[in-house]
Design a protein around this nucleic acid. Sequence first.
DNA 1: ACAAAAGTGTTAGCTGTACACCCATGA
DNA 2: TCATGGGTGTACAGCTAACACTTTTGT
Lengths: 235, 235
Amino acid sequence: MIRYSGQTRVLVAVDCIIFGFDGDHLKILLIQRGFEPEIKKWSLMGGFIQPEESLDQAANRILKQLTGLEGVYLEQMQAFGDPKRDPLERTIGIVYFALIDIHQYEKQISHEYHAEWFLLDLAPNLIFDHAEMVAMAKQKLRYKAALHPILFELLPEKFTVPQLQNLYEGIYGASFDKRNFSRKLLSTGLLIRQKEKDKENSKKGAFYYILDKERYKNNFQAFFNFVPNPENLIL
Amino acid sequence: MIRYSGQTRVLVAVDCIIFGFDGDHLKILLIQRGFEPEIKKWSLMGGFIQPEESLDQAANRILKQLTGLEGVYLEQMQAFGDPKRDPLERTIGIVYFALIDIHQYEKQISHEYHAEWFLLDLAPNLIFDHAEMVAMAKQKLRYKAALHPILFELLPEKFTVPQLQNLYEGIYGASFDKRNFSRKLLSTGLLIRQKEKDKENSKKGAFYYILDKERYKNNFQAFFNFVPNPENLIL
DNA sequence: ACAAAAGTGTTAGCTGTACACCCATGA
DNA sequence: TCATGGGTGTACAGCTAACACTTTTGT
């Protein structure tokens, strides 16, 4: 087979930043690396790209290996290519970030990787440049969530407005007026109120809502303004 | 040297989408590919990553090779990794997009690559998946320019408000009210009016402005709303 | 009865947008 | 003097944000 001559070939790894929300805090799922170098240190879940798979396929495969989940929100973020980022051998790292329902994950967890959820702001030291990747993903999530309705991906199918508000408040480290929040949210027309209430978090109970998937798809690219005074936030 | 065993190494190419604005239309700079496969076909400017350079360095090198320019706006966009995207050998393509002042380029052009500017919507057929890359870059540019003041990068140091409005109108294929446009723009405080006027495009002449670089840096991450009715645009 | 969280309505200020006229100049 | 493009002000509508009270129910 003819190939390009005189060029260096390198490893390409796909790393996944997996976000989850436990009801109070935003978390990321980390694993203990199973091979040298840096064995046993905390790391993002990743893997080398295989000969016959695309980048998206690799990311989905890696996510499934760890969480058992398929069809979740997964987006390519950025490629990292410092020549020294992996001390053993040059590796280009292509980072994806995923938003999953943390409770779904708990049902299907694979224990093979010694994975653990960490509070986003209290994560342990990570190998290589993974901390930089996580920092960028956090920025990106804030940025994107301010404009597009992606945070639903972190919640179960049925969720309440106060839960969603908690999530936004957690992500932006700010508190929003609940009347304005609820009005803005419901005015998108993306939510369908259910008959049942969530009685776990209050005596009165809060109505469950589900996403109107059709409208969600159609409205995804529209600009929203889910965060009051976005110019005051550090993105 | 110890290496990761049993893994496939692949080529990594960096491809640059170079945008320019001729005063009326948004254009991209394409080259005629100089080697097989697909020799002589139109292509983005690209090159394989070298052993000791980072991705950003590679992109800057490639941009400089073609245009002679340094220090221009350059942003990593997306990695493309379909296993069959290059028929000769598997190659991961990492795409950057650059915004340059087309007139600067003309001063420093390298003729080595048979480069030509094409109207964005009338570009020729491109090799591999380059057309997909360009389509994505166009979307991304529209998206980003609606929120951040990046289009200055396409203009000379001194520019007029009508020029800038032309640029926005070209990019969004829409026409904006000049009173509202000018007010919105000047209210950002990013522009400093000069004493001279551009007399080339009108008898009365239009004041030149320059960017307040300090404020530009500080305000870059703030949200703007440069495009009226953004929800009507297809991004 | 009381504590705790859910749910809802009004107003004032601001921002976005529509719209029309005068100005400066070269031909 | 006229045609061309540059520059500006105002008014209305819609949105954002600030703000407080009632409802429900478990204990």
